[in-house]
Design a protein around this nucleic acid. Structure first.
Length: 751
DNA sequence: CATACGAGG
């Protein structure tokens, strides 16, 4: 009975009528692009057709951009196939490998396949690779494209399928040697799109939240029953929009103001964004109470990752919060930017999943037509440090000429190469060193891999560094509450963990305490620590330990003997956890082997710091501490933040920082003290950069030198601009700060 | 004093 039902469901999918044609096409072609619109069933069905139609196929790999997709699709397909999950059909994601020797169809994240490719570039165990959701253009997908194209030359019998939902299909086919395209129509409903009459997107930036609320209210009062999804950009504005809309509803008289008052008599309003613990609160996914309209304010999470059922109306602000990496400064920026046409289309499509719908765009048709056609692929706005190390590990020598479907700015590649050289992962000819080979074992930022290996091979403290590295691989563990009172309390609780050397040891303290308290959720909540984040860090730590054991990298602790006898010492320092338990110098030295690239010296009489060198900006390396004008401040959550009074500022000279955030000033986020003697030898590498030929290409040297020259001239000019702008910014900030101080002093006198 | 859109190993 069940089997018949499943078969009926499978046969009702749009893709079913193309079953034989698809099988024939795959038999004939080793490179194939399949376009399947949302709801066509391509992800679950096509791999099964292969499973059923290709008897000699050993293993099929299907990549997904998201873990959750790999799990749910594999579960579904194993059900349809009539076997247990992990037998014929399984999935493989980080921390969770649900496959066996019997597995012939393996759903996996694109990241997992990429890591497999670093160990076996030919992907020998697979007969067919399917890259699904290719239109999402993750960094991993883009790298896989280049890799698979190269693999096709050496292993032409490997079948490569690219599956995508985009309409802009020729691009994939062009990239894969003009291979055939197979089109499967989808099953979605018509969405009527309404643009604002004249609003330009540039003028919306300061008003879109308010306009989105008004538009949601308009839909609520004027349109027939059906739920509403509103796209905004971030947590703050979503919370505000929810409050505003609820307030506006209070003024409604349903009898006179609401057109469909017979069926629409109330509303429920929900926010949704990734950090929301209430993601598990199912209400968002449930039907609203009868006669009630559900209105959801969402980030981009609702564009691809989360499907909310019952949506009939979409309100599109036209904006998204997007990370972009600036290769000239080496800093990430998180900015609100206009979306692309492709994204706008995808957002609108969310209104047509179960019935015909309507989309309301807060911007005009003219503005829509001026938007970029496609979103800039992630690979063109990310740091390529890890990617380039992986490619080096796969013995791709000339990375500047690696075949990317959309090549990143050469500056991004060059900067990654420079940093890998400074980390010792490649030599001055761009060749992977044995150190670099070892670094590529770990799924970590190469900076952290470097520190971890130093702690194991040189400093005998890899157990502790492994813990700290895990915590540095996850998002912020400290929660910042919204209310002032709770914020003060959170600040207080954090002090329990502060270590006088800075934040690296603070994180170690914190994790030890988390372990000692049985990973308790309650314990975390009381201390304003993010339990979910700490639990991820624990998983990463376990994985790192496994990898170290597997690759014979020593696991050594620098825990001191008799450390339990130092109660008096602890009291003296007013630190109630673990101080003096470890050889903290060794731990910091391990980190300094990588983070010498990020060291800064304190200003002679103010608590601000200046870069020693900026490896990230070509033409600007090896600058003297006093000649670089950008003032670096210590983050307020840091143990070393002056007002936390863990250390005397006069005792601080040099510090190293894990990362930097630029908002209205430059903030160093995870900071520890460092001795200049530890890193003096390393700093000489900056000089060596000048003569190194890292790009691995020796052809056309002369003309290339010219290009480099021009590049660096351009960069010099740009850097000068940046520095001057920063200087002006700092002067303004200093003036404001002085005024604030004067005002404070006056108030104190008055009181 | 004030990051935090989403995803991944």
């Amino acid at each position: 009975m069940i089997a018949t039902k499943i078969l009926k469901q499978r046969e009702s999918l749009p893709v079913f009528s193309y079953r034989q044609e698809i099988i024939d096409a795959i038999k004939k072609e080793n490179l194939l692009v399949i376009i399947g619109e949302t709801g066509s069933g391509k992800t679950t069905q096509i791999p099964q057709y292969i499973l059923e139609g290709f008897e000699n196929c050993r293993l099929i790999g299907v990549t997904q951009p998201r873990r959750i997709a790999a799990i749910t699709v594999a579960t579904r397909v194993s059900e349809e196939h009539g076997t247990r999950l992990g037998e014929d059909v399984g999935y493989s994601i980080r921390f969770d490998d649900c496959t066996s020797s019997k597995t012939r169809l393996r759903y996996m994240t694109d990241g997992v396949l990429l890591r497999e490719a670093t160990l076996d570039t030919q992907l020998e165990q697979y007969d067919i690779i399917i890259v699904d959701e290719a239109h999402e253009r993750t960094v991993e997908t883009d790298v896989l494209f280049g890799l698979l194209k190269a693999t096709h030359r050496l292993r032409p019998e490997l079948k490569i399928l690219i599956m995508s939902a985009t309409l802009n299909v020729e691009k994939f086919s062009d990239f894969f040697n003009g291979c055939p395209i197979f089109f499967i129509p989808g099953r979605t409903f018509n969405v009527n799109i309404n643009h604002h009459r004249d609003a330009k997107i540039s003028s919306l930036k300061s008003t879109y939240v308010q306009r989105a609320v008004e538009t949601a209210l308009y839909v609520h009062t004027q349109e027939s029953p059906g739920d509403v999804l509103v796209f905004l950009t971030g947590q703050n504005e979503i919370d505000k929009a929810c409050r505003d809309l609820i307030a506006r509803e209070k003024d409604l008289d349903y009898r006179t103001d609401v057109k469909y008052a017979d069926e629409v008599r109330g509303m429920v309003v929900y926010p949704i964004y990734s950090t929301l613990e209430t993601m598990e609160q199912k209400a968002i996914f449930d039907d609203p109470p009868r006669y009630t309209r559900k209105i959801v304010f969402a980030t981009n999470i609702a564009q691809t990752s989360v499907t909310i059922p019952g949506i009939k109306y979409v309100v599109d602000s036209g904006f998204v919060k997007q990370k972009s990496y600036d290769p000239t400064t080496g800093m990430d920026a998180l900015l609100v930017v206009p979306i692309s046409q492709a994204a706008a289309t995808q957002r609108a499509g969310r209104a047509g999943r179960t019935a015909p719908g309507k989309a309301f765009r807060l911007y005009s048709r003219e503005s829509f037509e001026k938007l970029d056609e496609e979103t800039v692929p992630e690979i063109q706005r990310s740091s390529l440090l890890s990617t380039v190390l992986s490619l080096k590990k796969m013995e791709i020598k000339d990375i500047l000429n690696f075949e990317f479907i959309d090549p990143p700015d050469p500056l991004l590649v060059k900067n990654a190469l420079r940093q890998l050289f400074l980390l010792g992962a490649i030599d001055n000819e761009g060749k992977l060193t044995s150190l670099g080979d070892e670094m590529s074992i770990f799924p970590l930022s190469p900076f952290l891999s470097r520190a971890l290996i130093a702690s194991a091979r040189q400093f005998g403290c890899s157990k502790e560094v492994m813990t700290i590295v895990s915590l540095l691989s996850v998002e912020e563990v400290f929660i910042s509450p919204r209310t002032e009172k709770k914020q003060t309390e959170a600040d207080e609780r954090r002090k329990e963990f502060y270590h006088p050397s800075g934040d690296h040891l603070t994180l170690l303290n914190l994790f030890e305490a988390y372990q000692d308290n049985g990973h308790s959720r309650e314990w975390c909540r009381d201390r304003y620590l993010n339990h979910r984040t700490l639990s991820t860090a624990k998983n990463i730590r376990d994985q790192l330990r496994e990898l170290m054991i597997k690759h014979n990298i020593p696991l050594i602790s620098c825990r001191k003997k008799n450390s339990h006898n130092d109660e008096r010492e602890k009291k003296k320092r007013k630190l109630n956890y673990l101080d003096a338990k470890y050889d903290s110098i060794k731990i910091l030295e391990s980190f300094s082997t990588a983070y010498y690239i990020n060291i800064a010296k304190r200003h002679s009489h103010r608590p601000v710091f200046y870069h020693y060198a900026s490896a990230r900006s070509p033409g600007n390396e090896y600058v003297d501490a006093n000649s670089s004008l950008l003032a670096l401040h210590i983050s307020p959550v840091s143990a070393l933040f002056p007002e936390n009074r863990v250390v005397k500022m006069d005792d601080l000279d040099w510090v190293m920082y894990h990362n930097m955030l630029y908002t209205n000033k430059a903030l160093m986020k995870v900071v520890s003290r460092v001795n200049l003697e530890w890193v003096e030898e390393k700093l000489k590498l900056f000089k060596e950069l000048e003569n190194a030929r890292l790009d691995g290409s020796s052809v056309a040297k002369e003309s290339e030198d010219k290009i480099v020259e021009n590049d660096s001239e351009k960069n010099d000019a740009k850097n000068k601009e940046v520095i001057e702008e920063n200087e002006r910014k700092n002067q303004r900030l200093e003036a404001i700060e002085a005024a604030r101080q004067r005002a404070l002093n006056r108030r104190t006198v008055n009181e």
